[in-house]
Each structure stands twice: as C-alpha cells, then as structure tokens.
Write a protein that binds this DNA or RNA. Structure first.
Length: 262
DNA sequence: ATGGCTAACATGGTTAGA
C-alpha cells in the first residue's frame, strides 16, 4: 500500500453478484493495490462498476453470460488494458491484462479441464499453450510481469491435501503440471514458495463433504512473477478468512506484495 | 458411497465447477 510497495491479490469469487458483499467486507479489512477476479459470471453490462468505484477501485472487466468472466481492479488507473489472449479467438472470457506503475498484470482463469482425456482437458492444455506464447511476448515487452489467477493446477503434491487420492486426476495430472512447468520455464516464479508457509496451505476447498472444515483442499490459485519482480517479492499468503464466512466462494484470495523502490 | 454442495438459468432439472 505504501508508495514503494505494490500488493496484488487474486480471488475466484464464483459469481460476483453473489459475492459482492464479501468483496466489500474483505476489501474494507485488506490493503491492496490490484485485485484480479475470476468467475465473475456477469456480462459487462451487468458489472457493478459504480459499487466497485465506491470501494475506491477502478478497472476493467471481461465477462460473459453464466460462465467464466475476469476483472482487474486497481486503486490507480490501469494502462494498456487487453482482453483475452491477443490473436486467440477464444469465446470464453478468461484473461484480462493491464499495467500499473510499470508492472504488467495478467489475470487468468485457466480452464478446469473436467477430466483427464476429455475434450475440455484437451482445451485446457491447448489453452495453456496459447497462454505461454502470449506470456513470452509480454515478458519481452515488460520485464516486470505478474501473472495471477485461478490456474486449476496444483503445482506439487504438497499443494494437495491427499496426493494419493488425487493421483492422475485433473488438476494434478502430469500433462497439466508439464504445461505449468512450461510457463515457469519462461522465467516465471511461483512467489508463494519463496517464503516459509504453513503445512497444508490451500486456496480452494470443495463445497461438499465439509472439505473446508477438514482442510481437504488444493492450492490452485497462484501468483507467478518474472525474475525481475520475483526478487522484489516481500510476502505471499493465502487469506482463508472469507472462506469461513456465510455463503462463501469455494476459493480464498491469495495476496503478494512487491517492493518497487529504486 | 462415483455421492456430497453451490450457482446460473429457469421455475424442474440440467450443466458446470474442481
């Protein structure tokens, strides 16, 4: 929040219409500069821009009916807003990007993939390939790049509450992890793992079977940063507070702070 | 136990999420 710091957060809200009260309460308690939302599930005409403005944020959104939808909200005006992956005629609203204080921020909602071997799984892997090409180009333009959002991939077994039960399943399959590794190989770093974290840190818990109470979750919401920015990261954490509230999103927000001092 | 729960769209039951 200070002039030399930039705090970014990602939150899959699973319907912004339903979660707007949580967003207001959480923002009132949380200092941040940029918030990347996923699964807003709103067409742009229905986006609650006035209510967001009343919270001291402005930004840009890229939505569609019923499914998907992303929004990038910030204390300061966003520059160079881009919706979708340029050159990829994807009808699903999953990406929005903008620049704040020289930092390029890309908000992503990676496809779920449904089941290994399904058409949706193939779409997920193809989509991640297109994302990788886009990010390579963005990295060439912007040394300071953050790519944050719902990746729908748990990077390692320690990001999974029960690795044996999940082995080979969608979100942890070797193909998905290889696709994530390709993104990291562009020069991106999962900043959460640059710091000591509590054991069994997750960002998503199934609504069913009392998964949150049992901490039966996955860490699939990630903040990736370019090398020039990752070395300036001073902290990254999951804030599970709103997951405890009534009628929560199944995802918790993840925050990361960067020191932008010269 | 292949279920469990939530949201959208619709207004009963399907689709999708992860």
């Amino acid at each position: 929040m200070s002039a030399a710091e930039l705090t970014v957060a990602t939150w899959n809200v699973n319907s912004l219409r339903v979660r707007l009260p949580h967003l207001k309460d959480w923002l009132a308690a949380t200092g941040l500069d940029v918030l990347a939302l996923q699964e807003t599930k709103l067409v742009d005409a229905d986006f609650p821009g006035a209510e967001i403005e009343a919270l001291g944020l402005s930004g840009a959104w890229h939505g569609q009916k019923t499914y998907n939808g992303v929004a990038l909200l910030a204390r300061e005006p966003l520059a160079d807003v881009a919706r979708g992956i340029p050159g990829y005629g994807d009808e699903q609203a999953r990406v929005i990007a903008g620049t704040v204080r020289g930092v390029r921020i890309v908000d992503v909602y990676v496809p779920n993939g449904q089941a290994v071997g399904s058409d949706k799984y193939a779409y997920k892997l193809a989509w991640l390939g297109r994302l990788g090409a886009y990010l390579a180009a963005e990295l060439a333009r912007f040394p300071r790049l953050v790519v944050l959002g719902d990746y729908n991939i748990a990077p390692e077994d320690r990001d999974v509450h029960d690795p044996k039960a999940w082995e080979g399943q969608v979100h942890v399959s070797p193909g998905e992890r290889a696709a994530l590794a390709s993104l990291l190989a562009l020069g991106l770093s999962d900043v959460f793992r640059r710091f000591e974290q509590p054991e069994k840190s997750f960002s998503w818990w199934d609504y069913r079977a009392a998964a949150f109470r049992r901490n039966a979750g996955l860490r699939i919401d990630l903040v990736l940063a370019s090398a020039a920015l990752a070395e300036r990261c001073t902290g990254c954490r999951v804030d599970a507070t709103p997951r405890r509230w009534e009628r929560p999103s199944d995802h918790a927000p993840v925050l990361a702070t960067f020191d932008l001092s010269p």
